[in-house]
């Protein structure tokens, strides 16, 4: 399906979304609507986004964001699902593990390194770092004097 058609499908789903076109069709939704849209995209006959390629957690300094790259194995079309403005103090997003099991590990990784908590996640633990580790290293304001050496250039 072309990006145009995809866009129409997303619009028909009735979600308030900002749609833009970059490399892939990018749909930006508020983080509390994300799960519904994701479920619709997966279950909709025309989209059938059954394969979640990646989830990126991004620190936008003022807020957090998550980017989901979705594709369909039947239609072979791609879509980027984005959410921003996740509360900095208490970042929480709905987990998509129930839709795509692969999200379990990816979300754990984001929780570990970025500090975004996912609701309804079956096993929200740190993935790489020790349980006693303080802070989330991928955040922009993370400081670790012993391990991070500032480059001069």
């Amino acid at each position: 399906m072309t990006n145009q058609q995809l866009e129409e499908v997303v619009k028909r789903l009735g979600v308030e979304a900002v749609i833009s076109e970059a490399q892939f069709l990018t749909v930006e939704v508020p983080f509390d609507k994300l799960f519904d849209l994701a479920r619709n995209l997966k279950e909709n006959e025309q989209t059938q986004m059954d394969y979640l390629i990646l989830i990126t957690g991004v620190d936008y300094v003022s807020s957090f964001g998550c980017t989901y790259l979705l594709t369909s194995t039947t239609h072979n079309h791609y879509m980027v699902l984005k959410t921003r403005n996740i509360d900095k103090a208490n970042p929480r997003v709905d987990s998509v593990t129930s839709l795509w099991q692969t999200a379990e590990y990816h979300e754990r990784e984001i929780y570990d390194l970025m500090g975004i908590t996912f609701n309804n996640h079956p096993d929200m633990r740190r993935m790489f770092l020790d349980e006693s580790w303080v802070g989330h290293p991928l955040r922009k304001d993370y400081v670790d004097e012993s391990n991070i050496i500032e480059r001069k250039y």
């Binding site: 390629i53 990646l54 990126t56 991004v58 980017t67 099991q101 692969t102 590990y105 990784e109």
Partner: peptide
């Protein structure tokens, strides 16, 4: 880059 993410195949395979 502002942020780089590598989606590594092995993490999903491990799951």
């Amino acid at each position: 880059p502002y942020r780089v993410k590598f989606r590594s195949p092995c993490l999903s395979t491990l799951s």
